[in-house]
Structure formats: structure tokens, C-alpha cells
Design a protein around this nucleic acid. Structure first.
Length: 596
RNA sequence: GGGGGUGUAGCUCAGUUUGGUUAGAGCGCCUGCCUGUCACGCAGGAGGUCGCCGGUUCGAGCCCGGUCACUCCCGCCA
């Protein structure tokens, strides 16, 4: 490299360059001013180089006054540092550049937030001055990681025989799923495009078009509220679709890709090269959630039947069980010597989470087996033996019990599992534990409307032979629908698709869409499936969440170049913004409609 | 739409419990001293509507009510 700005970058120079005259360009990272001797750390994308000026140099006073983060070119001679003054933490720490001349390319004002150092700063300032925030080492590193992950995925997918296809950004609104972002059409007054929530229908149409293996790093738009791990508005999926495949074919592709990806970009251990397949119902029972963290060894067991026994006197639970509640528990191994406060804290915490609390006892054995703890006295030896059989608990273990309606129990025990494991330090942070959640129900009951709705994707293929499906009891129908989960993070859902139009009408009618409505909303799709469609299926792992796991970050903004804040505003570009009345008029849009 | 947390100097934070003189510290900035630092050091200085509005009080950064901003969570996210 050699141009008017630089002969080398700021991480290149070594002892072997000593004596050469070089030019470097970059940001003034840090100054150390000794009055008659000035050290300057010059920083670029690649690293840091220390430059030195003495007070007999005509640029000394200029450099002394120049503010941090100004951009300059330094021309000077590479000098080997004297013994004892090297900095072995820097790749360039064995040399320094003796400044001969400089050129200031861009002067920086007083900074609203420093680039130097590892201090945390308020989110709104970081977002407003994102270009400064991104200069900081941690952010810079995360963004580079993200770039490398994207490149790696592309090359792996190509190796696996996939081709990348691009799909439209302006498309039509769909009735299912999230809220759409709408774009008014100038040429079609009163009509709107929608930004794609995912290229779902397009990727299926690509299969119908005969292309066999599709992937895309696809932007997806959903107008829903933000979370720490969910950008408002937009995110990226590794969108995948394959023809003539069964569920296991898709699992194989994803396992190869994920294992390679996570091994390449993290030093953490991938627990299983073949990810465990856990049926949805089993996951809800054993973990209370369909995104279990398998690093956590704690399991949930159902012990409702214990509370129908006459030799169990725990009347509060017995009464609830009689009226339809269930009891489930978490066993913790060898916790008999934990102090009372350990158990009480978890009980107290669960109440803060809105539960009615967690009962607990510890299994002991003197002459006979007994339960120690506030509710221990209610259990006979025989009932404890039965509990031990069901839960595989042993003497010295403790049980945390929750009683209530199934949804409440699943929820509280799911978060209790996390909480207790954290308190007992049971989670190995150096692991990635992947799993597949399979056999999702096709439909579920909407709690509010009491109507049957699609539980996941309306285009999924129901399991079993089509002729034998029992549409009278639709809640029992399972789908070829699956999620991939890593360390308790839901990375993606996918499905084998329904490529049979008649079946699709049937399924939609169960969810309350008549034939006309289905034809109206999915005409493109249905039409395509009527002229020879291959059986196909796919998946779409969230790219942002993959990078978060690899970068070990809890917040999606830490791995996104220019994120919006929680209110879906870009504080740097000032989006969204008002527009000229003329623009609105062209689009046939009025903005004076009041919200209810 | 709802709940929690935070808001004091350009930045990070202390002070709020128990209302009471001129609201402090570190970083940054400005001035001076300093030739081997790499978080350079030393001395001095500037910098504040204590988010905003209202209330209680002789007196409010501190108590009360409202409001705004940021954030985390619930709802929502096929």
C-alpha cells in the first residue's frame, strides 16, 4: 500500500521496519504530554502506533494542541524502542515513529463521549453519536465479527449447494402474524405495499419455480415493540428453503452449519454435534418452555397425583388439585446443607414474579425417610418414596413445588429453573447447548377470543397421512414445525410446508378463514401450488441472535451498526421524520386522523 | 397500552435515608510545570435551571402530585 495518506497501517510496523521513513494516517487516539516530549497514539481500523515528537520539532506545539479524535497523517522514521520502553501489549510495541512532519486532515471538536477507555455511556448519546461509539474497540470488534459471520455463512451455504436469491422489499400485507410496515403507493392511490415480515411466500415460490436450494441473508420488517434482543422494526434472518426434503434433511444442514459457525467464531464448546430432538409437549413438561437452556441440568416433574393420596396432608395443594390445578416440582441435588435463607429467597423471589410462591422441602433419612422444611410434615414416608420414584430425587436433595393452572405452573417453573440454577451456579458459561423442539401443535386456543388459531405458521404441513387427519379435534393435530434453540435463546422456527391447496383451505377454515378470504390473501401462493409444486421446507435462523451469542452480548444494539432506540427512532439520522405536504399529497395521504 | 429502574458538570457517578451555609469526586476541557510515557505525573482554573411543571414548607437536589426522556420487562413478535 502506498498513496499520499499512508505507506502502512497502524498495526503493521515492526522492528524489521526500523530506519524506514513511513506515513501513517488515522485518529489521534491518546496524547501523553511530557511538556518537552509528546507521545501520540495514532489509531486506525487495524491498530495503534506510538509516535513521538520533541519540543525542537516545528509541529510540536500544533500536535500538543490538537484534540483527541482529530484525523491526521504522520510522516516519520520508524525507530526501534530502547530496552525497557517497549510495550509488549501492542503488536507495534517494539517500535515507534519519530515524527518528521504532519498533515491535519480533519479536526475534532470537543467530544460528547470519549472513544478511549471502556466506560459505559448512556444509550441515547451512543446512538446520537454512533460514529464515535463505533470507533470504540468493543463495538468495532463486534461489528467486524458480524461481518465475518455473514461472509462465513455465505461461503458455507454455497459449499452446501445453496444459491442466494433476492426477494422483493415492497410486497403485500398479510393477515397473519405481526403488524406490517406499510408504504403508500403513489401510482395506486389509497393502496399500500407492506415490507416483508419475512420472505416466507417468496422462498416457497422460489422452490415452486424449480430452484431446489435457496438461501438469503434476508431483511425482515415487523412493526412490533422492541426488547433487548429484538430490534424495533427490522432484523436479519438466514433464510433457507429446500425442495424434496423431510424434516431431518433440514436438521442435518443446520447442524453442519451451526457447528462449523460456532466452532469457528467462539472458543466455547458446542455440546452436541447432533442436536437433541425434544417434542414440544415434553419440553413444556420438563422445562416449562419451548426454548429450554440445556446447560441447565434441573428438570421439572409432575407430581399432581401425590396430592390425591390420603397420607398427604398438604390441604392447600390438595384442595387446588381437586379443583383442577396441577403440581409440578424442581429437584435440586445435594442441597440439604443449604441455609434456610437460600430456600426462602427463592420463595420470596417467585412471589415477586407474580406466583403464589414455591413450597419446598429437603429429603432426609434417619430411621426413615422424612421431609424437612415448612411443609415437610405434611408428607408421609410412603408418599415421599413415591415422589422420589417419579422425580428420581435422592436423600439429601430438595424439591421446589408449584401448584396452579398449567400455564401458570409452566411459566413460573421455567423461570425458577433459571433462577435456581443461577443461584446454585449450575450453568456452564463455556458451552453452547443446541436443541430442536419438534412436533408443535398445528393449532392452539386463543385465550382471549376462545377461538382456534394457527399456533405457528399457517403454511406448515400437518403430520400424519392427509386422509386420516382428524379435523374434528384440531388441537390434537401436530405439524412438521420445529424450532432451533441455543442456550435458551430461540434462534429460529421452520417447517415442512403444506404444498397441497385443498389441505390448506381445510386448515385455514379451521382457523376461521373461508375459501374466499384465503384466495384473496394468498392467491399468488395458492395459484403456484396448483401447477406442480414440490414438497419443500425450510427454516430461518435469526442472524442478530446468532451474532449476539457469538459476541457474548445481551443487547442487540451491541452487534448492530446503526440501531434504533426502543421507541423505534434513529437518533443520529432523526428517523422517523415529518415530510413535506407535497409528498403526502402525491401519495394521497392525510395525517390528521386522531387515534382512539 | 401496562409495570419496574434511571435522570445531579461535556462524560461516569456520590449526595436524597433524617429537607437547613457556597451541591462534591474522577475523566474530559483551559492555564502553567515536566524528555520515556503507554489510564504519564504535578499545580491551578472554568464548567450546574440537580430532566421539566406544579404542590407542601420559613426553607426542596432531597418530601408529594403530574409530566418528559432513556432503559428493562409484560402485552405484542404467524
Amino acid at each position: 500500500m502506498m498513496n499520499k495518506y499512508r505507506t502502512h497501517n497502524c498495526s503493521e510496523l515492526k522492528q524489521t521496519h526500523a530506519g524506514e521513513t513511513v506515513s501513517l494516517s488515522g485518529w489521534l487516539h491518546r496524547k501523553r504530554d511530557h511538556g518537552n516530549l509528546l507521545f501520540i497514539d495514532l489509531r486506525d481500523h487495524y491498530g495503534l502506533t506510538q509516535c513521538v515528537v520533541e519540543n525542537n520539532n516545528k509541529f510540536f506545539s500544533i500536535l500538543e494542541k490538537l484534540r483527541s479524535e482529530s484525523v491526521l497523517t504522520i510522516i516519520g522514521k520508524v525507530v526501534k524502542r530502547e530496552k525497557g520502553t517497549e510495550n509488549f501489549e501492542l503488536p507495534t510495541g517494539e517500535i515507534e515513529v519519530d515524527v518528521q512532519s504532519i498533515k491535519i486532515l480533519s479536526e475534532a471538536k470537543d467530544l460528547p463521549m470519549p472513544v478511549f477507555g471502556e466506560q459505559d455511556y448512556p444509550e441515547d448519546i451512543r446512538l446520537k453519536y454512533r460514529f464515535l461509539d463505533l470507533r470504540r474497540e468493543e463495538m468495532h470488534k463486534n461489528i467486524i465479527l458480524r461481518s465475518k459471520v455473514v461472509s462465513f455463512i455465505r461461503s458455507e451455504m454455497l459449499k452446501l449447494g445453496f444459491l442466494e436469491y433476492q426477494t422483493p422489499i415492497l410486497t403485500s400485507s398479510s393477515p397473519e402474524g405481526a403488524r406490517d410496515f406499510l408504504v403508500p403507493s403513489r401510482l395506486n392511490p389509497g393502496k399500500f405495499y407492506a415490507l416483508p415480515q419475512a420472505p416466507q411466500q417468496f422462498k416457497q415460490l422460489i422452490m415452486v419455480s424449480g430452484f431446489d436450494k435457496y438461501f438469503q441473508i434476508a431483511p425482515c420488517f415487523r412493526d412490533e415493540d422492541a426488547r433487548a434482543d429484538r430490534s424495533p422494526g427490522e432484523f436479519y434472518q438466514l433464510d433457507i428453503e429446500m425442495s424434496f426434503v423431510e424434516q431431518e434433511d433440514i436438521f442435518k444442514v443446520l447442524e453442519i452449519l451451526m457447528v462449523n459457525l460456532f466452532q469457528k467464531f467462539s472458543s466455547k464448546k458446542v455440546l452436541n454435534n447432533k442436536f437433541p430432538r425434544i417434542p414440544y409437549n415434553e419440553a413444556m413438561l420438563k422445562y416449562g418452555t419451548d426454548k429450554p437452556d440445556l446447560r441447565n441440568p434441573l428438570l421439572i416433574n409432575d407430581i399432581t397425583n401425590i396430592f390425591t393420596r390420603d397420607d398427604v396432608k398438604f390441604d392447600i395443594f390438595k384442595k387446588l388439585v381437586k379443583s383442577g390445578s396441577i403440581v409440578r416440582c424442581i429437584v435440586t441435588k445435594k442441597t440439604k446443607d443449604k441455609p434456610r435463607s437460600f430456600f426462602d429467597n427463592i420463595d420470596k423471589w417467585s412471589k415477586e414474579q407474580g406466583a403464589s410462591g414455591l413450597a419446598y422441602f429437603t429429603l432426609e433419612k434417619n430411621e426413615k425417610i422424612s421431609a424437612k422444611g415448612p411443609v415437610g410434615k405434611f408428607f408421609s414416608e410412603d408418599s415421599l418414596k413415591e415422589i422420589m420414584k417419579i422425580t428420581k430425587a435422592e436423600v439429601g436433595d430438595s424439591l421446589f413445588l408449584a401448584c396452579g393452572k398449567i400455564n401458570e405452573i409452566e411459566k413460573i417453573l421455567s423461570i425458577s429453573r433459571d433462577k435456581i440454577a443461577k443461584d446454585l451456579n449450575l450453568i456452564n458459561e463455556d458451552q453452547f447447548a443446541f436443541c430442536w423442539i419438534v412436533d408443535y401443535p398445528m393449532f392452539e386456543l386463543d385465550e382471549q377470543t376462545k377461538k382456534i388459531k394457527f399456533s405457528h405458521n399457517p403454511f406448515s404441513m400437518p403430520q400424519g397421512e392427509i386422509e386420516k387427519l382428524d379435523f374434528k379435534d384440531p388441537l390434537k393435530i401436530k405439524a412438521y414445525q420445529y424450532d432451533i434453540v441455543c442456550n435458551g435463546v430461540e434462534l429460529s422456527s421452520g417447517a415442512i410446508r403444506n404444498h397441497v391447496p385443498e389441505l390448506m383451505y381445510k386448515l385455514f377454515s379451521i382457523a376461521g378463514y373461508d375459501k374466499k378470504k384465503v384466495e384473496e390473501k394468498f392467491s399468488g401462493m395458492l395459484n403456484a401450488l396448483s401447477y406442480g409444486a414440490p414438497p419443500h421446507g425450510g427454516i430461518a435462523p435469526g442472524l442478530d441472535r446468532i451474532v449476539m451469542l457469538l459476541a457474548n452480548e445481551k443487547n442487540i444494539r451491541e452487534i448492530t451498526l446503526f440501531p434504533m432506540n426502543q421507541n423505534a427512532q434513529d437518533l443520529m439520522m432523526k428517523a422517523p421524520s415529518e415530510v413535506e405536504p407535497k409528498q403526502l399529497k402525491e401519495l394521497s395521504i392525510k395525517t390528521d386522523i386522531k387515534k382512539d
